[in-house]
Amino acid sequence: MKKALTFLVLLSILVNCQRNVEPEIRFQKPAHFPEPHYDFSYNPVTTAGFQLGKKLFFDGILSRDGSISCGSCHIPSSAFTQHGHDLSHGIDDKLTLRNALPIMNLAWQKEFFWDGGVFHLDLFAIAPIEADNEMDETITNVLEKLRRHPQYPQLFQKAFGTPEITLDRFLKALSQFQLMAISANSKYDQYKKGLTQLDAQELAGLQIFQQKCASCHKGELFTDNTYRNNGLPIRRFMLNGIDTIDTGRNRITLNEQDKFRFKVPTLRNVEVTRPYMHDGRFRTLEQVLEHYSQGVQDSPTLDPLLKQNGQLGIPLSQDEKDKLIAFLKTLTDEEFLRNKLFQQE
């Protein structure tokens, strides 16, 4: 009996120790990244907040019939995109307007969606929850379901001190999970830190990239966070029975000059975020480069950088394209893509 007790005490100490050993989850800016845009003073990342956010992220309870979670369209191993779909699929297999954007390095993003319609990460999740072709649920009802859930009130208590489930806390927890999705350890990053070398092909690709791509895909985040018309041919398509033309940023500003402008996406992990463009029309990086060199269409809102000296597009030889693709693949961050922290349990 005594032995058993001692054993139990020892075991519990062991378990407790192990718990203590687990590193606390905190946001840390990668040294070579600029200051984040997200104001963490409102919502500091904690282990409990992150874990709650993670559970919510992968829980179908956010959707009307329990079938769709955030993770359905944002799969961690594809840099949180919906691998293989051009337009992402939501509830009842309904099509959405666009291709799901990756979730990574969101702390450095000022606006969200391809059109920038949401201007704070904390406000983001309401949109997919309430969209009738995504999760088709009301935010009010989601909170009600969570309040009645056997585990969530406790998890909210752990994360925020009391079991109260409010919209603010719900959204903050989701943000905490997403904010931790930081990709900053690709081969390119290691090269920047002097930890590895790029091969000749990749280096040549980097040089071409800096000359021909980096004015939009700028800096360590590989985007300047602007909206641009990159000359894609305009597509008319049926979206769940409605004849649709996606005018991009124009839907948010209602400004003619913003017609067909879309957010410049980051290129980190671009190798695994196919298909490409707001409507996922290109399946490969080769097709993307083909578009920039041969396929750019003129229109009143075409980005001036794609029409320099009266010439449409960006001139690229086959050799340059190969080198560019070799470089783009150095942006793949295996550590990020395989990180257990983000995988559904």
Binding site: Y42, F113, G117, V118, F119, H120, D122, L123, I126, A127, I129, E130, A131, T138, I139, T140, V142, L143, T166, L167, D168, L171, K172, R251, I252
Partner: peptide
């Protein structure tokens, strides 16, 4: 309209009184 969620309480609570009076896709 641009304030953090924690400053949108009462009448302004998007999940409460203001449900249905908010564009989520275009904050």
């Amino acid at each position: 309209n641009t304030k953090p969620v924690e400053e949108r309480t009462g009448t302004l609570d998007i999940a409460g009184a203001a449900a249905g009076m908010y564009w989520s896709w275009n904050s």
